[in-house]
Design a protein around this nucleic acid. Structure first.
Length: 165
DNA sequence: TAACATTCCGCGC
DNA sequence: GCGCGGAATGTTA
């Protein structure tokens, strides 16, 4: 079971998905205004979820402003494969304003030749922004790619004061 | 098996 | 030095 809640921000309306274990997914604002509303935030929401949601809203707004969130909700990354979870936890260790190359991340998880695969895992990241997949650049310090749209990646990097080619 | 959000090396300019 | 082509590479659906 998963609960969808909207998060209005200066950059648009994000959508958060919660499972029993925490925040399971975060979606960028739809390019065009969503046709069918995701799901209305109605009456009784489990106390735990509204608690998590407050944390998510604060963290997301901090992150979008280029500041490091001080507190995150619990993240439910159980949907990923073993390899993906290793990559994602490596990503979470990259400090705000810092970057790593795909190869460096690969080395960090003990699989130096898997830089290409690391790119794949970044693309599969269900919680962009909060799990900072945008801080991973190509070895030559070029931007690389981004599933959510390169514009987002550039914007997020710029907010953190990171210069790219 | 094919498709990648990579990287490295060699060549030609 | 820069740009381009091509091969090696690990993971996924």
């Amino acid at each position: 079971m998963t609960t969808k809640l909207e998060i209005p921000t200066a950059e648009g309306v994000f959508t958060a998905h919660y499972s029993q274990h925490g925040l399971a997914r975060l979606d960028f604002p739809a390019a065009q205004p969503a046709v069918g509303k995701p799901k209305k935030e109605t009456a009784a929401l489990p106390a735990q979820i509204s608690r998590w949601h407050r944390l998510t809203v604060d963290a997301l707004n901090e992150a979008l402003a280029g500041r490091a969130p001080r507190l995150l909700p619990p993240l439910d990354l159980s949907a990923g494969t073993e390899f993906q979870r290793r990559v994602w936890s490596a990503l979470r260790r990259i400090a705000s304003g810092r970057t790593r190359s795909y190869a460096e991340v690969a080395a960090q998880i003990g699989n130096p030749r898997a830089s290409r695969a690391v790119g794949g895992a970044c693309g599969a990241n269900p919680i962009p922004v909060l799990v900072p997949c945008h801080r991973v650049l190509a070895a030559n310090h070029a931007v690389g790619g981004f599933s959510g749209g390169l514009g987002w990646k550039r914007k997020l990097l710029a907010r953190e004061g990171i210069a790219v080619r």
